[in-house]
Design a protein around this nucleic acid. Sequence first.
DNA 1: GTCTATAGGAGGATAGAC
DNA 2: GTCTATCCTCCTATAGAC
Lengths: 216, 216
Amino acid sequence: MSEYRTYLDLNGNPIVNTNKIKILETAIDLFSRKGYSGVSIREITREVGIKESSLYNHFASKEELLGVIFLNFRRAIGEILLPPEMLRGALKQMIAEQFLQQGVINFKAHIDDPINARIWRIVTIEQYRDPLARSILVEDIIQRTLSFLESAFALMIEQGAVKPHPPKLLAAEYQYPLFGMITEYNLQKYLDQDTSAIEQSMADHIEFFLSHVRTA
Amino acid sequence: MSEYRTYLDLNGNPIVNTNKIKILETAIDLFSRKGYSGVSIREITREVGIKESSLYNHFASKEELLGVIFLNFRRAIGEILLPPEMLRGALKQMIAEQFLQQGVINFKAHIDDPINARIWRIVTIEQYRDPLARSILVEDIIQRTLSFLESAFALMIEQGAVKPHPPKLLAAEYQYPLFGMITEYNLQKYLDQDTSAIEQSMADHIEFFLSHVRTA
DNA sequence: GTCTATAGGAGGATAGAC
DNA sequence: GTCTATCCTCCTATAGAC
């Protein structure tokens, strides 16, 4: 169990009870491997070391438990991207290359946290069954990243750092390969496989992309 | 139910019994929406209109049912890509653009079949729980496509149609965006949403890619 | 090949004592 | 906040008649 992470409940209050945190993290682990429907309350509480009935003192239902997991993931995702109002300032201080590399570093810090990686997998597994999982995937991950990058590339073009392609096209060309590679990265991490090849592919992609769009 | 599709059982024999086919297609539909663990034998047989016990006359277990679904999906996937021995001949008759566009047409024919789209979603859902789903995703979809494209780009370079980048890099740059976009396409189809934007993104990607790598 | 009947366990969830 | 005890439903799977 991660010692220093804080979780919020549905009212936005920090969760302090040790068993409640244990339930959350055990559920995250099991859901990410077997899916929500493949895991029973019984299995979670057995692993935590409490009785089934005790879980209901912390969460009203199995579904609420998943809801709290997703709520906290939304918070964590929010920290990957720079706030839009800081975009212009950041791009004044960095060249395009640095800016994009910093984005990858931020993302890597996020996904290399085992808890985040697990919830990312839960979102993938549950996207067709659960509307909340789906909205996290579509709105918080895909759309948010693409529109952030669209603004960033528009600014880079304004600065003359990048050739004047449509910013939306640049965002898609830059990000979609990374989405595909992240899926693979996440699966390899799950299997404890070596991820150096796919990480190299990510780096190669950024280099290939920039070599064709930068003005310098 | 699709009238003309044929399914094979685990021994490679065609499945002719109507109820057995109904069970398969009902299971495909339900698994693709709720996941394997989220669907019961009871639910499947209720929809088919038979008793639970009758299902076991056709499939030894729920797991075997999923196994037969995956077996038939492997066959269907095999038809997307050109056999490697026909690659050289095809590239003599087509320019790079035509060749890649034909690939997208082939793939679109595959994924626009509702049954294939559903099994594609089952594979996504079950990739962490089920080793067979995982091997379909990694070996039959990702690796097979990338190594096919690597050969194709190597030939295009040989023919002078494409600039001499490493073929593996070209394959990754070409295909990973499509993987990402297919995920989105498949989700939008599931939600009966308009897919024209993401389809346009696929076309834009191919054009963007070719404009930077073709020699002409 | 489909049925009725049933086994035997696992599922989510609650009541009430401490 | 955790426990024991319990509810009732749903689960996969089998036996045996027709």
